Simulated scan of single mutants.
Amino acid sequence: MITELVFPLPAGYRVQDVLAFHGRDTEGVAEHITSEGLRKGILLGGIPVLIEVAFTPRAARCRIAADGEPGAAQRQALHDALLNMLGLRIDPAAFADAAHADPVLGPLVARQPGLRIVQSATVFEALTWAIIGQQINLSFAIALRRTLIQVAGRPHSSGLWCYPEAPDVARLQLEDLTGRKFSRAKAETVLRLAQLVADGVLSLARERDPQEVSRELLAVKGIGPWTVNYALLRGYGYPDCSLHGDVAVRTAFHKLMGGDTRPDIAEAERLLERYKPHRTMAAAYLWASLSEQPG
């Protein structure tokens, strides 16, 4: 099945932010940056799907090639995945209006207009990435993510690998991951999550109340508040995630505000309170501040 979807893009849309997020794995196992945009493979209802996005100044033209015939649920999931991948869930204008006079983030918003939250294609992908990335450096996390794709996912007929779904991961044995540099605790958490989702005990449906999802996720051994908030941000596009436990967020506050020491978690939580109900965009700008060159 081959189909095409077109998503209009707002003025000032930052294509490079999207390409940077999806191009983190330079080996291009499941995502590949092209001269026109990007290619990504995902499994939807067990069907390998290739998404090809070509950017024009005013639109993202998306060509979808599925190795099968997706049903209505898979077609909706595909539309949701594209909104996520393109960063179109959260309109940044509301935060820009609210923060333009803020002494900490106001100048940053003025320097970087139109910053968006780019998301993982699915909630399950966002959650597994959050678990994988806990307390390790980015390059090692990307390598572990690549491993998960290759042991649990499947290649599309084009050759690009597809990110797995919960049932694919739930079929793995612990040794499939620990034998490939996953810590035992990380492997157990990934498999535990996948089994709960595959069995229908834990629903990651997008229409669910994020607070209810948060409570259920926090009850899963190995998943803490940072993982939940990151998943709400990268998976659901929830606009008010508090990333006070994130080291990069705390480092950014220290860089922007000065002082002798980096804010601790409690202080970062207090600092983020003033950006409610837009704390997700606040985190995005704090992350972006760390990449700015000194002026």
Rank of each mutant, 00 (worst) to 15 (best):
R274K: 11
E175V: 04
L233V: 03
Q134Y: 07
L286N: 13
A72P: 11
I142P: 14
Q119A: 06
A99G: 04
L271P: 05
L82F: 02
V169A: 06
E212P: 05
G12P: 04
L83G: 09
E216S: 07
E52W: 03
S242I: 04
L256R: 10
P263Q: 13
F55N: 07
L9F: 03
V18T: 15
V213G: 11
R279F: 03
E292A: 15
I117Y: 02
A60M: 01
P294N: 09
I47P: 01
Y163K: 10
A288Q: 15
S214R: 14
A266M: 07
L5E: 14
L83A: 08
V247G: 07
W226H: 05
R184Y: 03
R24V: 09
A288T: 11
R208N: 08
V213I: 15
A126L: 05
A30N: 11
P57L: 04
G295F: 10
E269K: 11
A288E: 15
V109I: 06
G224S: 02
A170W: 07
G133C: 08
V15W: 05
G235A: 00
G68S: 09
S139Q: 15
H278Q: 08
V197W: 08
S120F: 09
I64Y: 10
A283S: 15
Y236S: 02
H100M: 05
L177E: 06
M1C: 05
R63I: 09
T26I: 12
I42W: 00
V228Q: 07
D91W: 01
S203M: 09
W287D: 12
G106H: 06
I42C: 00
R274D: 06
L218R: 03
L193S: 02
E267L: 07
L196E: 13
V15S: 00
V109M: 07
V123L: 10
A66H: 06
L43W: 02
I47V: 12
H278D: 06
A20G: 13
A170H: 07
D102W: 01
L38S: 04
P8N: 04
A170E: 08
V213E: 09
Y275N: 07
S35M: 00
S289N: 13
A101W: 01
F140L: 13
L160E: 11
Q173T: 07
C241F: 02
A219C: 06
R215M: 10
G23R: 09
P164S: 10
S157D: 14
